[in-house]
Design a protein around this nucleic acid. Structure first.
Length: 467
RNA sequence: GGUCGGAUGGCCGAGAGGCGAGGCAAGGGACUGCAAAUCCCUCUACACGGGUUCAAAUCCCGUUCCGACCUCCA
């Protein structure tokens, strides 16, 4: 039995995962700044860490998974001006958009999903502690800064030198002791939202919320902190600085997912709306988009193209088709089983691509067994495949992906189609292939695919067509 | 300028000193009235130049190109 090893950005090595507390895992994932609709890059992080969470859960851990919502930030305020809406309305609107996208991709809701604005008290307490410990200072203008020169260590995650950094440009330099000190809290500006503190009214800096909320929900130390690669600096460095200066051991391991790129570049708004999740879901189903995002290794760059997505969806439908046929033949949905090969692959820093090779093997065996009628092998293969898909969050038999309220309709449709198929079978038996093909073509035109199998003809509704 | 990651077949994507992952596409075959689905077979690789080694896609040095974060310049 292999045991789980995970990569750690801090050490740049893969090492055995040992939880702080036996049987328990605490994960903090930096979630979205809700200032625009989610694009495919945003949700890759959600999917990757959802797979990690599912695998930890499947491995027997009780996982506490925190993913925050940054609902106060410069970009949100700018957007509010642009959209002529209150900042909180903008935040809510895009938070919903993210929630919808996560749901469409079957990303499990976090154990807790704290919003920054709901944790101002915790942030003030953290700042008070940092000031008391001499790690932070309030120069009197309403800002609060962390004094980076006083830190025992800084920039250990990105391995940069403090003197190579240029000063942060987010506040008035005249109040800083050192230009590289960063803002924990920003003094109120006219018209901007603000909250009262002992040092003046203002709003949180970008980094403070994560330290405060991680402490609130996971305590002084927890197992894994995750996020996208770009968060390593400055966000995660500053989280470490704040939390360690407050006396917390903070995260024991750092995990970062790589980019989805387009035309070799990091996804950005200049690419327009075409890569927004909502747009992509017009071309493939959520389960297919998830399969695409999840099938590359989380630390590998994923070069997006519509062709690659369509191809990935084709591959997924093949697996799905087998599970559907297997379920029909077995008369019951296969029980999910985790194979040794899958376990070994996942335990090796979530080597999903390697695990997928095993699925392909099981798929081949299972399809052959359908031809030969070996139910035992069909059941074994289907169970292994379903077990793997379940961990990947791509189980087509998962109720999350089935259309609700459609069962009665499906039964009625089945009756109608069976009538047509009976006519076709009769025509075929009297070698009237013109008539039988006419029936099949008619059904195909309606989006009903017909296959003649050893068990007789079967039908399925064709999926979203490729564009 | 600093820090870091990458370059694998038509395409997508693993692997990380010795046996050519896997998928998609393509070609051939089996099955089929014809299809579809499925199965079988085939093909095409490790950016470039050196080096280490019995053996390098994998390690080392250099080069080119691509990208990320922070800068710089404009």
């Amino acid at each position: 039995m292999s045991s789980l090893s995970l990569y750690d950005t801090l050490t740049r090595t893969t090492s055995a995962f040992v939880p702080l507390k036996a049987g328990e895992v605490g994960i903090y994932l930096c979630g979205a700044t809700v200032q625009a609709p989610p694009h495919i890059g945003h949700v890759r992080s959600g999917v990757n860490f959802d797979i990690l969470r599912r695998w930890l859960t499947k491995s027997g851990y009780n996982v506490t998974f925190i993913r925050n919502v940054t609902d106060i930030d410069d970009k949100i305020l700018h957007k509010a001006v642009h959209e002529e809406s209150p900042w909180w309305a903008v935040a809510m609107k895009y938070e919903r958009a993210f929630s919808d996208a996560y749901a469409a991709l079957n990303v499990q809701p976090p154990t807790y999903e704290p919003r920054a604005t709901g944790h101002i008290t915790q942030m003030i307490e953290l700042m008070a502690s940092l000031i008391e410990r001499g790690a932070a200072y309030a120069p009197g203008n309403g800002d609060v800064y962390l004094e980076v020169r006083k830190l025992n260590s800084y920039l250990t995650l990105s391995r940069q030198k403090l003197d190579d950094l240029q000063p942060a440009a987010d506040a008035d330099e005249t109040f800083k002791k050192d230009p590289r000190d960063f803002a924990l809290w920003k003094a109120a500006k006219p018209g901007d939202p603000s909250w009262p503190t002992p040092w003046g009214s203002g709003r949180p800096g970008w980094h403070l919320e994560c330290s405060a909320m991680a402490y609130a929900y996971l305590g002084e130390s927890f197992d894994i902190h995750g996020g996208g690669l770009d968060l390593i600096f400055p966000h995660h460095e500053n989280e470490i600085a704040q939390s360690e200066a407050a006396g917390f051991a903070f995260s024991k391991r750092w995990m970062h997912n790589a980019w989805v790129t387009a035309s070799g570049e990091k996804m950005s708004k200049s690419l327009g709306n075409s890569l927004q999740v909502a747009e992509l879901l017009k071309t493939v189903r959520g389960i297919e988009l998830r399969w695409y995002l999840g099938s590359a290794h989380y630390r590998s760059m994923l070069e997006f193209s519509h062709e690659a997505l369509a191809e990935s969806a084709t591959a997924f439908r093949r697996i799905e088709g087998f599970l559907t046929r297997a379920t029909e033949i077995l008369g019951t949905a296969p029980t999910p089983v985790i194979s040794q090969g899958f376990t070994d692959a996942m335990n090796d820093d979530l080597a999903v691509p390697t695990a997928l090779a095993g699925i392909s093997e099981a798929l081949r065996l299972g399809n052959s067994a359908i031809t030969s009628g070996d139910k035992s092998v069909i059941a074994t293969s289907a169970s292994e495949i379903r077990g793997a898909l379940e961990v990947l969050g791509c189980d087509p038999l998962d109720p999350a992906f089935t259309v609700s309220g459609g069962a009665d309709l499906t039964d009625a449709l089945d009756g109608v189609i069976q009538l047509a198929l009976a006519q076709r079978t009769a025509a075929r038996e009297r070698k009237d292939f013109a008539s039988s093909d006419q029936i099949r073509d008619g059904l195909t035109a309606l989006g009903i695919n017909i296959e003649d199998t050893a068990q007789g003809p079967r039908w399925s509704i064709s999926q979203i067509s490729e564009k």
